[in-house]
Design a protein around this nucleic acid. Structure first.
Length: 287
DNA sequence: CTGCACGCCTGCCCGC
DNA sequence: TGCGGGCAGGCGTGCA
């Protein structure tokens, strides 16, 4: 489900109930998600203050006072939502409702304030792990990640170098988290539409001018999506439980058969399958 | 090394 | 209404 904008939306929503707050109790209702939880996860979380909530790519990291960090991945269908008991008012937290157990609520953090943070994930492709904060970047899931697309390490030279010699289609290259970290199927489709690049084009065969245009296109689409609270197709919810609404701004993704929205283009958005995943693009203006 | 298919899960939507 | 097939925002593994 969630790509960088959805994860960032969730992180921002959780921040007022978690940052600087203590996890009083952790309820872990099953032994695993995609992988087994780390040993004694609940005990290692209980009583810990959350110093900071960070995001790296599609991962959320909660830095704890113990010197450990809780790593959270939402997989395809994961949600983290806030529930507040009746009458509890916290600054910056809106649209809450009291907690009522729902199917697939696998993990809950009961904060000392009384707020609950609920991790729900029907497909269980999500993950949690505990790792030393000081060596977080060497964690197996994080060590090979490329630059943050909204950070300073993502720029024209970096991208040109990463795409150099790559015979794979640009669609697959941009989904490769080692090249740039955080894009998924939706935002790759959208960024390629914005730059007029066909998802089928070999990565190595994109000229320097178009590589340069990809950088701001990727940044813009991610920033706009974060601003809109992410894209809600099936699963994504903000931490408040509200939908995101960037899906109404899609130009390519999930628009098969509909007219291309580019000025002056008379093409129609087409769905193709590349390495087993849908790509949506306009064959007329994306070359 | 690269590129790709597959599996992990559940739920939903569509056609019959 | 029921049932089977296809599809879904991710990602690690294993294969050629």
């Amino acid at each position: 489900m969630p790509e960088l904008p959805e994860v960032e939306t969730v992180r921002r929503g959780l921040s007022p109930v978690m940052e600087g707050q203590v996890i009083a109790r952790a309820h872990v209702r099953r032994p695993d998600l995609r992988w087994p939880f780390p040993p004694r996860m609940a005990e290692r979380l209980e009583g810990q203050a959350v110093l900071r909530l960070r995001r790296r790519s599609k991962y959320i990291l909660a830095d704890l006072a113990s010197g450990e960090s809780l790593l959270i991945h939402l997989g395809m269908s994961g949600r983290m939502t806030i529930a507040l008991p009746d009458g509890l008012v916290l600054p910056g937290v809106f649209h809450h409702k009291p907690y009522a157990f729902e199917k697939h609520d696998h993990v809950e953090f009961e904060m000392a304030s009384g707020a609950r943070v609920v991790f729900n994930d029907p497909r269980r492709f999500g993950a949690m792990d505990l790792l030393p904060t000081s060596t977080a970047e060497t964690h197996k899931l994080l060590s090979a990640l490329g630059p943050e697309p909204l950070g300073n390490d993502f720029h024209e030279e970096q991208l040109a170098k990463a795409l150099m010699g790559k015979q794979t289609p640009i669609k697959a290259a941009l989904l490769d988290q080692r090249i740039v970290a955080g894009l998924g199927n939706i935002y790759v489709c959208e960024a390629l539409w914005r730059t007029g690049i066909s998802p089928k084009r070999r990565a190595a065969n994109i000229g320097p001018v178009r590589v340069a245009r990809l950088v701001p296109a990727i940044r813009d689409v991610l920033r706009e999506a974060i601003e809109a609270g992410g894209s809600s197709l099936r699963d994504h919810r903000q931490a408040s439980g509200e939908l995101g609404y960037f899906q109404h701004s899609f130009a390519a993704y999930d628009r098969a058969g509909q007219p291309c929205r580019k000025d002056g283009c008379t093409g129609e958005i087409t769905r193709i399958v590349q390495s087993g995943r849908s790509s949506f693009y306009c064959p007329t203006c994306q070359r």
